[in-house]
């Protein structure tokens, strides 16, 4: 991971087509993400944003029917979800699942050690781990009671999102894909979450924000903004594009694309 340098290719997607329950959702998607970059993928509801996130993480019931995705030089689509995770790909879920009976912190420790084993690093013990996680909990303004609870068990929507970002800050991924991380957050929680994400911005790492609204991008300023609609990236630009989308909505991008 340390040998990744700013500008190195982290993710290259070309011509990706994905069916969900027999229905074409992604219809030839291209995207390149390099180290040091923050990308925002925006688009109307039903555009395929969540499908893209889930497919990149390896969701088994989404069928890739064409195209390629290369992650750090490897064929991403040939890797099992757990292999992707250990190679530093992190998905922050839009709807993190509740898993009663599986302790939040033990899961996170197991996740960190799975990653460290892959990197050839020594596993952290319970004591070292607690020190790491407590530091990150301060950053995420999370209560110590989180340590004792089941994974997302009884968490509010905002707590679940915070927990996702806490996991991300502990795991220090190479590529973080955050699916609608801003949805359901009030402004204070949004700032905390944005802080957590910003703390991870680095030259050897990339972040992909998948979002419907511009407001998250006030707090996490992206280098690149893409419009995903109808299963394809229709337009790419810089932060100005996001502001324009907020002003004008998505329809004009669709019209432009149709006109081509």
């Amino acid at each position: 991971m340390s040998n990744i340098q700013k500008g190195n290719s982290i993710l290259e997607i070309s011509g990706l087509k994905v069916n969900v329950q027999g229905k074409a959702i992604l219809k030839g998607l291209d995207l390149t993400v390099r180290a040091g970059e923050v990308h925002a993928i925006m688009g109307p509801n039903g555009a395929g944003k969540s499908t893209l996130s889930q497919v990149l993480a390896g969701r088994p019931d989404y069928a890739v029917i064409a195209g390629h995705a290369t992650y750090l030089g490897e064929d991403l689509l040939a890797l099992a979800p757990e292999e992707r995770a250990r190679r530093g790909l992190f998905l922050g879920f839009q709807y993190p699942v509740e898993i009663p009976g599986v302790n939040n912190v033990y899961l996170l420790k197991a996740a960190l050690n799975a990653r460290r084993r892959h990197l050839g690093l020594q596993e952290v013990d319970a004591f070292e781990f607690l020190a790491i996680v407590k530091e990150k909990m301060v950053l995420m303004q999370m209560d110590e009671s989180f340590l004792k609870r089941g994974v997302n068990e009884g968490f509010s929507g905002g707590e679940k999102k915070r927990n996702e970002i806490l996991q991300m800050t502990v795991l220090e991924p190479t590529l973080a894909i955050l699916d609608e991380t801003d949805s359901g957050l009030d402004i204070d929680a949004l700032k905390v979450v944005a802080n957590g994400v910003n703390s991870l911005r680095a030259d050897n790492r990339a972040i992909v924000l998948v979002t419907h609204y511009q407001r998250l991008l006030d707090h996490i300023v992206p280098d690149h903004v893409h419009v995903l609609a109808g299963g394809r990236i229709l337009k790419s630009g810089d932060r100005g594009l996001a502001l324009e989308l907020e002003r004008r909505g998505y329809d004009w991008v669709l019209e432009e694309a149709n006109a081509e």
Partner: peptide, 25 residues
């Protein structure tokens, strides 16, 4: 539960551990 299983896998747990953990839970 497939959603729980997928969540654990995306955190790097191997399939056998994830299944055992959910069974235990």
């Amino acid at each position: 539960d497939e959603n729980m299983l997928f969540y654990l896998l995306t955190r790097g747990l191997d399939r056998q551990t994830a299944r055992a953990l959910l069974t235990y839970a």
